[in-house]
Design a protein around this nucleic acid. Structure first.
Lengths: 151, 151
DNA sequence: TTAATATTTCAAAAATATTTGAAATATTGA
DNA sequence: TCAATATTTCAAATATTTTTGAAATATTAA
């Protein structure tokens, strides 16, 4: 696959792109990989509507290198009906495991698994009172849950 | 497990909870399941700090019944590094599969799988230009991605 | 002590999601 | 028409996540 690169434009998404005379570039570094096979003997074949500037390309490549693992981790934890419902409940009231078990209508061990994930993600925590564990949203959990605007 | 229920309080989370004299209730309907074994011969054993009002309980139970499947579905789609990075890229610029393949540094079939999930979730779509498919964020995708405040 | 209770942990089983590579499809250009 | 290209589809192999039930832990109550 080969890509044609057009001259600089004023910041991706800004609208107004001026199209400079067609000119195939062969840049160094990261761009090399992306545009490797694009040169004179090997002319680029791309659809006419498809133009992309060096600036935009670089911007996208920079984004690609950003670490998304934290975001993914939190999204993974949130993307489960049981865990979402636990969070919803705890937003209203701190609840002990025994009540959650009844509310969720499930086995202790199952609930416990999900509570563990939520806790490991720092979204909830619990305090002990005798034999009972009473779970609550953490401050950061409260914030995240709110900022995701999920509920 | 048995739960002790205390008198009405003014809306969960409003602060100021007045604690009426201890009184075990045995309500009907949904509450029955939750509080089934809580009566005179079978006195409730809960930790002293743990009080919950009928109102709060009802509120939580109502929440439990709400359907979260749409939210879960979208969160599931978002909770993958590859898909997140695709979305990030498409926020900057519409991109054809061939460029995405290079950016993501992966096989076509793999990329295609993730594009499909994103498309099925209505977050992205594509237009065809000859042999090329050029993917873009949908309007609703744009909105969702923004509202989740992920990037 | 001992028994009962609330909860977690663990490992195996089951369910889901992802990756892989080959083959299919559709479009272009000769 | 035919070959080349861009992309998707498919089914099998892998990997990850979730469920299950039994056993472990820790606390209370007797």
């Amino acid at each position: 696959m080969k890509i044609q690169i057009f001259g600089r434009d004023a910041e991706g998404g800004e609208g107004l792109k001026m199209e400079e005379p067609e000119k195939v570039r062969k840049p160094a570094g990261v761009k090399n990989r992306l545009l490797a096979s694009c040169d004179q003997e090997n002319p680029c074949k791309i659809p006419p509507s498809y133009k992309i500037s060096m600036e935009t390309l670089e911007k996208v490549e920079r984004l690609m290198r950003e670490d998304v693992s934290d975001t993914v981790a939190i999204l993974k934890v949130l993307s489960d009906p049981m865990r979402l419902r636990i969070l919803k409940a705890l937003r209203i009231e701190d609840l002990c495991v025994c009540v959650l078990v009844e509310l969720m209508n499930c086995e202790y061990s199952k609930l416990s698994y999900h509570l563990k994930l939520l806790k490991e993600a720092g979204l909830i925590d619990c305090t002990q009172d005798g034999n009972f564990l009473i779970y609550h949203l953490t401050e950061s959990g409260e914030k995240k849950v709110t900022s995701f605007g999920i509920f």
